[in-house]
């Protein structure tokens, strides 16, 4: 990919932020990798490979992109989506439409990096359509500023056609969260499969709100929605996991684990299971509490202090 001279400096900063969030910036320039680089309200780099079609444009305070994976194509290398904001204050709106055509297969690596923003609202709306027997994996990692001034509002709606598979992994564990409002829902058709996995670590006065919803609407549809939240200091977290068993032989499992550290945290989890077809099976697991005392004792007996042991356990849980 070629970055125009006008954006060379901007790309350099975006690449720096991308690397901070754990990405490998060299991938963004690799011609064999499809990628989109967004800075503020501009797309400063775009590359496509065979089997991938991308349309894009600007909108008020942001950008939009329509990404289509053509029928039967298996995209060998993950598509990289790099979203950054270099200013300290502002708003960024990003709309993505994903069309994964029948029998296609693709994975995405998305890095959203706002390390310098002290007051930023980032709004992302994604519509995902996964065709019959198609597969899409979306790994979304966020890297925010330590000032805690980032507000992230993310809304993803997915439809997975017969036999399709969809996996969405969201991670915000390396920096402060700020304010987070994530909603993900999926409409699963016959024998379709979905997995949501969110891992978030909150500290100071971070606010976390997650809603994950599985619509098991086709016969034999399967889904898992799992959230793991580590809440420290004065973090507030509200987690809702939902599963709706509307079709025979559909199975859904929802799970929420919240680890607390600090006597001022305020966390809750609400599992919602609803069955409208008596051949559907739904299960849930939930836990809220401090790090397991047996794990702590095991590590402390090896010479780790309680703080070291807690950190060691939490890092493992969020891995």
């Amino acid at each position: 990919m070629q970055i125009s001279a006008n954006y060379a400096n901007e790309f350099e900063k975006i690449a720096e932020a991308y690397e901070k969030s754990g990405g490998d910036a060299s991938n963004l320039l690799d011609k064999s990798i499809s990628s989109i680089i967004i800075s503020g309200d501009k797309i400063i780099g775009l590359n496509t490979v065979k089997g991938v079609e991308i349309e894009s444009g600007t909108q008020e305070k942001g950008v939009w992109a329509k990404i289509r994976i053509l029928k039967g194509n298996k995209i060998e290398k993950p598509i990289h989506l790099c979203t950054g904001f270099l200013g300290k204050e502002g708003e960024q709106r990003v709309n993505f439409d994903f069309f994964i055509e029948d029998d296609a297969e693709v994975s995405f690596i998305s890095h959203c990096s706002f390390p310098w923003s002290t007051k930023l609202t980032h709004k992302m709306v994604a519509n995902v359509h996964i065709g019959k027997n198609a597969v899409m994996t979306y790994n979304d990692e966020h890297f925010h500023s330590e000032a805690g001034g980032v507000t992230l509002i993310s809304d993803t709606h997915a439809v997975v056609e017969d036999g399709g598979k969809y996996e969405n992994n969201f991670e915000l564990t390396k920096t402060r969260v700020g304010t987070l409002k994530v909603r993900m829902d999926v409409d699963l058709k016959k024998n379709a499969v979905a997995k949501f996995d969110s891992k978030i670590r909150g500290k100071e006065d971070d606010e976390i709100s997650i809603v994950e919803s599985l619509g098991l609407n086709g016969e034999g549809a399967h889904g898992i929605a799992k959230s793991t939240v580590v809440a420290t200091d004065r973090t507030r977290a509200r987690i809702i996991n939902e599963a709706f068993g509307n079709a025979p032989y559909s199975k859904g499992h929802i799970e929420c684990n919240e680890i607390t550290k600090g006597d001022k945290v305020d966390v809750s989890t609400l599992p919602v299971l609803k069955v409208t077809n008596d051949l559907s099976e739904l299960t849930h697991e939930a836990s809220i509490g401090r790090v397991n005392s047996e794990q702590l004792d095991t590590l402390m007996a090896k010479g780790m202090s309680e703080d070291e042991a807690t950190e060691f356990i939490i890092r493992g849980i969020l891995r």
């Binding site: 397991n292 794990q295 095991t298 007996a301 060691f312 356990i313 890092r315 493992g316 969020l318 891995r319």
Partner: peptide
């Protein structure tokens, strides 16, 4: 300098 291998070896997710 005192340590133990507890009877139940606990699980450590992600480690």
């Amino acid at each position: 300098g005192i340590t133990i291998a507890f009877q139940n070896s606990v699980r450590f997710e992600g480690i």
